[in-house]
Design a protein around this nucleic acid. Structure first.
Length: 515
RNA sequence: CGGGGCGUAGCGCAGCUUGGUAGCGCGCCAUACUGGGGGUGUGGAGGUCGCAGGUUCAAAUCCUGUCGCCCCGACCA
């Protein structure tokens, strides 16, 4: 039997990285720009990010945070204040050394006006925001200080991939200061929870909540909490992090307050962020060999209407019918916003147009022609079903059931992603089985293999380093208490013995290849 | 920075070994027939072959240099 024709070539199975790039292109989400490593986010891709922003922003504000904005440039000396932080970011920063361009006499331009102190394009803003905090905070009455900023940052990555890793990316970074360690840790945990809720309830992307090992921690942090998702190539994607910074930055930057006992104390600070990388995670969680599949809650358009006007006795009547349906659907709400309907009346051939929307991942497509109008019904196709599964549905039923319909697609995506993760997560109790799990059968052209391995580890970083060297596998996180049960891996809880040394282990950690 | 590859039309590529004034597919424009799974025909627009030198009567093709990009590795949200 001939292979089913797919809208995306190659398929995931054939060449996953190439498939990813083709999905991004076919869905018209983004493209490489003229600047190395930087992307142009196109309207359909940016609209997804805007929806993410809107939901997250609401969640942040509902938990007492306020937005502010800090400079793009950071004085070099600021970045040098916290030792580990310097170490962690120094190698990947863009540096501004001049502030003017002059005619070079050969039709070109040359930098002029050297700066006294170089400016760093922010790779993250702990230091410059910390400096502001130091000015703003005087008394315990000023605490907690809960600030978030939506911004772009630059990390000069050596290898980039659209959305997943670009030299410049968009994100939000929360920065907070507290009077006690407990409060700061509670904040770190709260934001971690919010990220997990967003990933699962809005992106339909199941995540493992856990703590990073020392080797994987944010430079300068005391502890880092992370959410880790499994992509369809079974690699892990770090989708959001929340850092407890202890008093490290407060001490480096004199962020202090006067306590109610009249003593000057250092604050305890946190930072947390998610980025446009989430769009990459969304793609790799749900897209299939026909292109993008969008969870309805974040889809720029919930439904697309394709008017079938050729050969109609009265094309305008068909368009009018579509407009009226759109109006009625727009009066329905789903997940906190009006149902958004796009009418695509471009003069394109039907099949072509249909496939464009399949590739863009629109949750529901509606085809409406004269025949349907006569029966006061529409022809509906769901993106979570095969493109050929179309069904006629009464106009009134569609309007009444619209929200439920979208929710069922949303739920289905989460369930499917959970099942996929469960299928490729293994409880591993022996070193050889661990190595076998992460070794492809075809060494030349590795097939999609591996997944999450839940295995005991004695806590020795040297062993983790060796495993990374051997297999390219790292510890994604140490699951939080109760997290394995929550994910459906209850049998993996409890103490045991390190599979590499036989030494005691307090619990299994999650191992995987990572993005 | 180490290893590999590539720069020819908007995109994807062929042509280069055996030099002779540039070609294919998709896309784009017009038009006709079509039309609820990516249709077909006809007629068009569009490139001087990354850049700079050199060899030659003649260079996309040979030589030298140079710039850029991609993939694998090290580094990373």
């Amino acid at each position: 039997m001939a292979k089913q024709k797919t809208a995306i070539v190659p398929t995931r199975e054939e060449n996953y990285p190439e498939w990813y790039q083709q999905v991004v292109r076919a869905a018209d989400l983004a493209e490489n720009s003229d600047v190395r490593g930087c992307m142009v986010i196109k309207p359909w891709g940016y609209a997804i990010w805007e929806n993410m922003q809107q939901v997250l922003d609401r969640m942040f504000k509902d938990t007492g945070h306020q937005n502010a904005y800090f400079p793009l440039f950071i004085p070099k000396s600021f970045l040098e204040k916290e030792a580990e932080h310097v170490e962690g970011f120094a190698k990947e920063c863009a540096v501004v050394t001049h502030h003017r361009l002059e005619d070079d006499g050969q039709g070109g331009l040359k930098p002029a006006g050297e700066l006294e102190e170089p400016l760093i394009v922010r790779p993250t803003s702990e230091t410059i925001i910390g400096a502001a905090f130091a000015r703003w905070i005087e008394s315990y009455r000023d605490l907690p200080l809960l600030i978030n900023q939506w911004a772009n940052v630059v990390r000069w990555e050596l290898r980039t991939r659209l959305f997943l890793r670009t030299s410049e990316f968009l994100w939000q970074e929360g920065h907070t200061a507290h009077a006690t360690a407990d409060q700061a840790e509670a904040e770190t945990a709260l934001m971690h929870d919010i990220y997990a809720e967003f990933a699962e309830q809005w992106m339909a992307m199941p995540v493992m909540k856990g703590e990073k090992t020392q080797g994987e921690r944010f430079p300068g942090a005391v502890s880092t909490l992370t959410i880790e998702a499994m992509m369809q190539d079974r690699k892990a994607l770090q989708a959001g992090t929340s850092h407890f910074l202890g008093q490290n930055f407060a001490k480096a930057q004199d962020i202090m307050y006067l306590s109610d006992e009249g003593k000057r104390e250092h604050c305890w600070t946190t930072s947390w962020g998610v980025s446009t990388r989430l769009v990459g995670g969304l793609i790799m969680s749900h897209a299939d060999d026909d292109g993008l599949v969008l969870p309805p809650k974040l889809a720029p358009a919930h439904m697309v209407i394709l008017p079938i006007t050729f050969k109609a006795d009265d094309p305008q009547a068909v368009l009018d019918y579509c407009e009226s349906l759109k109006d009625d659907l727009s009066k329905q709400a789903y997940a906190g916003r009006a149902i958004e309907v796009e009418i695509d009346d471009r003069d394109l051939r039907g099949g072509d147009k249909t496939w464009q929307w399949v590739k863009k991942g629109a949750p529901i497509r509606l085809e409406i022609g004269q025949r349907d109008i006569a029966q006061d019904s529409v022809f509906m196709a769901r993106r979570d079903q095969s493109p050929k599964d179309k069904q006629s549905i009464k106009r009134a039923d569609l309007i009444a059931d619209a929200a439920d319909l979208l929710q069922s697609i949303q739920d289905g995506l989460l369930e499917k992603a959970k099942a996929f993760r469960a299928q490729h997560t293994r409880v591993v109790n022996a070193r050889d089985k661990f190595y076998k799990f992460f070794t492809p059968k075809q060494a030349e052209q590795p097939e999609i293999h591996g997944g999450f391995a839940l295995a005991h580890w004695n806590g020795d970083e040297a062993i983790a380093d060796q495993v990374q060297k051997d297999l390219g596998v790292t510890i994604r996180c140490i699951p939080l208490e109760g997290e394995l049960e929550r994910g459906g891996f209850g049998e993996a809880t409890g103490e045991g013995k390190c599979i590499f040394t036989g030494e005691p282990s307090r619990g299994r950690v999650v191992w995987a290849k990572a993005y």
